[in-house]
Simulated assay, not measured.
Amino acid sequence: MAIKGYRAFIKKGISAGKRQDLTGGGLLRSIGGWSVLKDFRKAGIRVKGDERILGDSDFVENVLKAAEEEFEQKYELRAKGYDFNRVIQRVAEVMGMEIEQVTAFGKSPPTVKKGVAKIAIIGS
C-alpha cells in the first residue's frame, strides 16, 4: 500500500514538471530576499536551510553539527595513524590471528572458534 502511494506521489510530481519554488536561489530566495535576510541578521537571527530542506533551522544546525563531529573524529583517528590496515593489524594481534584470517570472507569454524576463545579469555 505504501509503495503504491509513493509511486502515485512521484508520478504526480513528475507530471507537475519543474517548480520554481523548489529550484535555484537557495536561502536568499526562500527567505524573501536581501532585505528580509538583513532584518534577520540585525535581529540576531541566523537561518540555516530553506524550504527545500525538510526541517527547521534547529534541525539543519543539528545535522551539520553531527556531520562536523563525525568529520573531526574521522580525521583525529587518521592523524593518530589509524587506518583500515592498522585496525586489521591490531585485531590480528589481539585475537592471535593471521591478518588474512581477519579479512577472510565468511565464517570459517577455526577462525570463529579462535576469536570466541580469545574474547572469553579477555572478558574474564
Rank of each mutant, 00 (worst) to 15 (best):
R7P: 00
G5E: 02
K4W: 09
I31N: 02
E76V: 03
R78N: 07
G26K: 03
A2Y: 01
L54Q: 12
G81H: 01
A120I: 05
V47R: 03
A8V: 03
K114H: 10
G123Y: 11
S124H: 09
R19P: 04
S30F: 14
I45S: 02
Q20V: 14
Q20R: 15
D39S: 12
P109M: 11
G55L: 02
I10W: 00
G13T: 02
A104W: 05
A117Q: 05
V87D: 05
E68D: 07
S35E: 14
V116A: 10
S15E: 15
N62S: 11
E72W: 06
G49E: 00
S108I: 10
D58C: 14
E98L: 12
R52S: 08
D50C: 12
D50T: 02
D21M: 06
Y6A: 03
T23W: 09
S124R: 14
V102I: 10
R7L: 09
S35W: 09
K114R: 13
V116M: 13
V60C: 10
M1A: 11
E98C: 07
K74A: 13
A117V: 01
I99L: 13
G32T: 02
G49W: 00
R19S: 11
I14R: 09
G115C: 14
V47K: 06
R41T: 13
F105A: 15
V87C: 12
S108M: 10
I121K: 05
A92W: 01
F40Y: 15
N62P: 07
I45N: 04
W34D: 14
D39Y: 06
R41A: 13
I99E: 13
I88T: 07
G115A: 15
V91D: 10
V36T: 09
L27V: 15
D39M: 13
E76Y: 05
A16D: 15
A67V: 07
I119G: 07
T103W: 06
I14F: 12
A16E: 15
A120P: 00
Q101L: 12
G49I: 00
I121D: 04
L37F: 12
K65Q: 13
S30H: 14
L28N: 05
M97N: 01
G96Q: 00
V116G: 03
G25C: 03
V91H: 09
T103I: 14
V60D: 01
L37S: 08
L27C: 12
K114M: 07
D21Q: 08
A104V: 05
P109L: 13
L54E: 10
Q89Y: 10
P110K: 05
K38S: 13
D50M: 05
E69S: 07
L22T: 06
G106Y: 02
I3W: 11
L28D: 02
M95V: 03
A8F: 00
A117H: 03
V60R: 11
R7G: 01
M97R: 02
A66F: 10
A2T: 06
I121G: 01
A66G: 06
G55N: 05
I122V: 05
E93T: 08
A92C: 04
S57L: 05
G106K: 08
V63Y: 08
E51C: 12
M97A: 08
E98D: 14
S57K: 06
